[in-house]
Design a protein around this nucleic acid. Structure first.
Length: 447
RNA sequence: GUGGGUGUAGCUCAGCUGGUAGAGCACUGGGUUGUGAUCCCAGGUGUCGCGGGUUCGAGCCCCGUCACUCACCCCA
């Protein structure tokens, strides 16, 4: 017997059957509306990029391990994009002369990374990217922070469900150099250590710090600085605070963010503000959103300095968050109305009735084969139809059809021309009461 | 790449100290011509993830392998 191919999708990727897709799109569309309400414009780009644009910058040695690469027939080395930032940098650089800055752009794209799948991390995910290009103003930070709050509000999340932890690499570096007296060349490795501060046990941290050349005293000083929260700012030199675009945020909208010296982020291109958003429920320990400010986004492509700030949020952690808090929308119904011919020679009339329902604005199906009426009614009701129109020989001979309310289970026989309006009334009433898109209950706080 | 857990019907799972595989749900058809829940009847070729080993005999024990999953590494 010949071997059959597996039906499971490639490791780390997901199929979105209609019910799953409906949920995903509902979540995304709420976010699109909010983002566009802030005046951001959507863009898109290719999934394939030259492999060099990742190897050069984003993650260095990691790019090699986690990049899906291929060689085209012309010998060019290409990669599936692992993130959107290099692509958008390329676009901005290529059109810098034509664009008006600040440019507010957003997108939603699938990105691939070759890594071992686990909770909150897959090999393919969809990611909304939001950026403001061409500004150094801290007002951009504030705008994005407010946008993040609006996005969570649109998803039905209250502020106790998540936390926006924010830092600034300018302040981070000042802390390391001015307070802990770390040598300039040690700033980056020590920053990486801070990035892992919450994951590693204390003795391991001390060990790694010693390995980086920090004295016991410096390690103590670092630990106390990281624990001091907002008080840390009082210890930093005024010069550093003057350069920080985070300080105005902390002054003007302190209630929207949590200053947190432990936030570093892995990517090299961040030069200022960095932030991550976390679920307050420990079931989801990974960041929901992450982003930051970059002073020179497009340096690979142009000598023109293009600063900006942006963030991304993926569709792997977000549904985990929504499910944990009972905020995941229900799948939306596929159809509003169904037309059922009651005899084999009534398919033609049924199709013309259906055209009338569609003209009345209803998503309408016509049965493709004749079956027991009871079974067919069950079937279309399960598909989400709120109304069925029965086209039977006797009614049809009189120029009438029967419009049945599948929820209330009562029905009226009306002239064919009335079928659309009658069905539309039932659907409007039905959707108004049991409106779709409400969160379904789920056990919150498990684990 | 490293480690743990799990792989039995479409789904959720049961299967005793080894004796040639089960339940519930779901699904399909029927219970006479045009009316849905419930009820009755009927419907499964499941390579027990795959390969090898031990045994008279393996879903069960042993080895390997693959997949899923959780964590590590790393990270949008």
């Amino acid at each position: 017997m010949s071997e059959l191919l597996p039906t499971a999708p490639y490791r780390g990727t997901r199929d979105f059957l209609p019910a799953d897709y409906s949920v995903r799109e509902q979540v995304f569309h709420r976010l699109y509306e909010v983002i566009e309400s802030f005046g951001y414009q959507r863009y898109d780009g290719p999934i394939l990029e030259s492999a060099e644009i990742y190897e050069a910058k984003s993650g260095r040695e990691l790019a090699d391990q986690q990049l899906y690469t291929l060689v085209d027939r012309g010998g060019r080395r290409l990669a599936l994009r692992p993130e959107m930032t290099p692509s958008v940098a390329r676009m901005i650089a290529g059109h810098a002369g034509e664009l008006t800055f600040p440019a507010r752009w957003y997108t939603n794209v699938n990105c691939h990374r070759y890594e071992r799948p686990q909770r909150g991390r897959l090999r393919e995910h969809w990611q909304i990217n939001v950026d403001v290009f061409g500004t150094e103003s801290a007002q951009a930070e504030i705008e994005l922070v407010e946008l993040v709050h609006a996005m969570f509000a649109a998803l039905g999340a209250s502020t106790d469900m998540w936390r926006l932890r924010i830092n600034d690499r300018v302040l981070l570096e000042s802390m390391l150099v001015d307070l802990v007296k770390v040598a300039p060349e040690q700033v980056k490795p020590v920053s990486k250590l801070i990035d892992r501060w919450e994951k590693l046990p204390a003795d391991r941290l001390a060990e790694d710090a010693a390995g980086l050349g920090l004295s016991d005293g410096q390690f103590e000083r670092l630990g106390s600085a990281l624990r001091s929260g907002l008080a840390l700012l009082d210890e930093l030199p005024a010069e550093a605070k003057a350069r920080s675009t985070l300080v105005p945020v902390l002054e003007q909208v302190p209630e929207l963010v949590s200053y947190d010296p432990l936030i570093v982020r892995g990517l090299d291109y961040y030069t200022g503000t960095v932030f991550e958003i976390f679920d307050t429920d420990p079931a989801n320990p990974r960041a929901l959103f992450g982003g930051g400010r970059y002073a020179d986004l497009a340096g690979l492509f142009t000598t023109q300095k293009i600063p900006g700030i942006g963030f991304a949020c993926g569709d792997v952690t977000l549904p985990d968050f929504l499910a944990t808090h009972g905020l995941l929308p229900a799948a939306a119904p596929e159809v509003d109305a169904a037309v059922l011919p009651l005899a084999g020679d009534l398919f033609g009339p049924a199709r013309s009735v259906a055209a009338g329902l569609r003209a009345a604005g209803l998503r309408t199906t016509v049965s493709l084969e004749q079956r027991k009426l009871g079974k067919e009614l069950t079937r279309v009701a399960r598909a989400g139809a709120l109304v069925a129109v029965l086209v039977g020989a006797e009614d049809w001979a009189r120029g009438e059809v029967t419009v049945r309310d599948l929820g209330g289970r009562d029905q009226v026989t009306v002239p064919v021309a009335e079928a659309g309006p009658a069905a539309a009334r039932i659907v409007r009433a039905g959707r108004g009461i049991g409106s779709a898109g409400r969160g379904i209950g789920s056990t919150a706080g498990a684990g």
